[in-house]
Amino acid sequence: MPHGSGASLEWSSGRVTAPFHGPVRYRYGNDDEETQVPEHEAGGPLGTPTLEVRDFLRRRREQIAQRWADEPLFRAVFTLSRDEAVEAGKAVVDALAQVADARRAEDSDAAGFTGVREQLARMSTSRSRAGLSLAQVSNELAALWPPVDNLLAAELAERPVEELRACTTTLSTLMGTLRVVAVQTALSEGQALIDRQRLQLLEVATPVIRLWDGIVAVPLIGTLDSARSQVVMETLLNAVVDQHARFAILDITGVPTVDSLVAQHLMKTVAAARLMGAECVVSGIRPAIAQTMVHLGLDLGSVLTRASLADALGYCLHELGVAVSSPAAGGAGHR
């Protein structure tokens, strides 16, 4: 292997990365006793600790995977067969070895993790579904470290103490990074879910109603923020195309306040509808809001407004040439 002199340079210059998640202490098995890293004497050939760890991972792939298969995380996720758990464990060991090989033990974006990201996501999702908090999942991930560390300590028992310590440190960094990757993946799964639900909620909150042949309306209820306005605009304009609507009514009776931002969004929606060949009417501006708007100096400018949804519908029907008459009066036209 092409490392040797360069390796000892890295060694002595103290560039060995320190674990970022705390001192090298851990629990042995079910024992509550905290144990220091065992110290051993005797020497051996030098490699950089990272590459030592890589070689160790490759040599002990089978044993590590076997031990992991008995850990709660793997046991709980791969319930069907132990072999499956062992295979999954091997994939994780391979990923760690690959990351060590690239000397990126502390880099959660290391290419080596790409292959196991999906598997880690599956594992953490399945644990969360079982009711575990993210912290508990993270603890289960942390529990993967001691078995590997024990193997490493046993294997490097003959080495000088500082070498062993450096290797243990590297391994702990690597395992820490694995934990970060898994938690990151779990979080981003959660974030993706939240994003999807937020969009769904926005769509649900924006119903488009076909009032007449060629007339659609969106009754808006609640506060209009930037994201919601965008959804409203898209929904309304898509309805104009789908329903072949020449008129679109935006009813803001249920909107508590109209500030300059909301006014701007209304004007944009009206302008976009006009470019498509439809006319947009804004209805339901309550007197109090009208007053505020005047006070704020907000000018809806070119926007066509009507007091109520009924008035807006009346206007659109009139424009379409539809006369509404009361049968009793025998044909008095709607204003």
Partner: peptide, 10 residues
């Protein structure tokens, strides 16, 4: 991706 448009103070 999926970020609402910037709010501008115009």
């Amino acid at each position: 991706v999926n970020r609402p448009p910037r709010v501008r103070e115009e």
